[in-house]
Computed example of a mutant assay.
Amino acid sequence: MRITLKIATSLDGRIGTSTGESQWITGPEARLQGHRLRAEHDAVLVGVETVLADDPRLTVRLPDGEQGRDPLRIVLDSKLRTPPFARLSKPGTLILTTRSVIPVGEAEVLRVTGDSNNRPALQAVLDTLVSRGVSSLMIEGGGRVAACFVAAGVVDAIEWFRAPILLGGDGRPGVAALSLARLAHAPRYRRLAAEPLGDDLWERYERV
């Protein structure tokens, strides 16, 4: 499975303010490219904190004349906090949890093995997606989910949309703590391209 991390941040790598406000950091051109990337993947994945903060749809919305299919939407939700009225509590969404299954709207809920923190274990998540025929996955949030996949060394590519604003150290990071003791341990990526999109910058990276 090819895994891509898509992030939209401020210049200093923040996905939201200290209060969690995040819509919209980037402009319409960057958001449109994000929809095109969505259409290229079999599945997109977020953590429940993103669901609670933004109530995203994670569907593909393109201008007239452009074709795109909706990917499978994945939510990592160990305690099943996704509200039954959320936009993702619909058919086409798979919620992965570590607790006993209860209905969440019309979404499919599946219990998977937990890690040491009783969150869905990364390997269990990947195994589940492979069993569903997913060959390309895009991670769309939040920072803790991004850090989990990056730290595991499974992120093959990064699509980074950077807006010309600063949110400061109390803003919410695009990638949460990796607990690195040495620079030599830092995950490394090679930049493939950098392209302006309106006022924003779209940077593309692949794993070294």
Results as ranks from 00 to 15, higher is better:
residue 18 S to P: 06
residue 36 R to L: 05
residue 22 S to V: 02
residue 96 L to A: 15
residue 153 G to V: 13
residue 195 E to K: 14
residue 156 D to L: 07
residue 49 E to R: 11
residue 11 L to C: 07
residue 83 P to H: 08
residue 97 T to Q: 06
residue 14 R to H: 03
residue 208 V to E: 07
residue 137 L to T: 13
residue 195 E to H: 00
residue 109 V to H: 10
residue 82 T to R: 01
residue 91 P to E: 12
residue 94 L to T: 14
residue 111 R to S: 03
residue 76 L to H: 04
residue 85 F to R: 03
residue 25 I to H: 09
residue 46 V to P: 11
residue 1 M to C: 05
residue 39 A to C: 01
residue 128 T to N: 01
residue 173 P to F: 09
residue 77 D to T: 11
residue 24 W to P: 00
residue 6 K to D: 03
residue 199 D to F: 01
residue 134 V to S: 11
residue 159 E to H: 15
residue 72 L to M: 07
residue 165 I to T: 02
residue 115 D to N: 12
residue 35 H to F: 08
residue 199 D to H: 15
residue 44 V to M: 09
residue 125 V to W: 07
residue 198 G to W: 05
residue 193 A to S: 15
residue 206 E to Q: 11
residue 99 R to V: 15
residue 63 P to K: 14
residue 68 G to L: 11
residue 158 I to S: 06
residue 170 D to G: 02
residue 205 Y to S: 09
residue 100 S to N: 12
residue 192 L to C: 08
residue 140 E to R: 13
residue 16 G to T: 02
residue 26 T to E: 09
residue 136 S to D: 10
residue 155 V to K: 12
residue 124 A to R: 06
residue 134 V to Y: 07
residue 18 S to D: 04
residue 65 G to C: 04
residue 134 V to Q: 10
residue 143 G to A: 12
residue 92 G to R: 12
residue 61 R to N: 11
residue 196 P to H: 00
residue 151 A to H: 12
residue 131 S to Y: 12
residue 120 P to K: 13
residue 139 I to G: 15
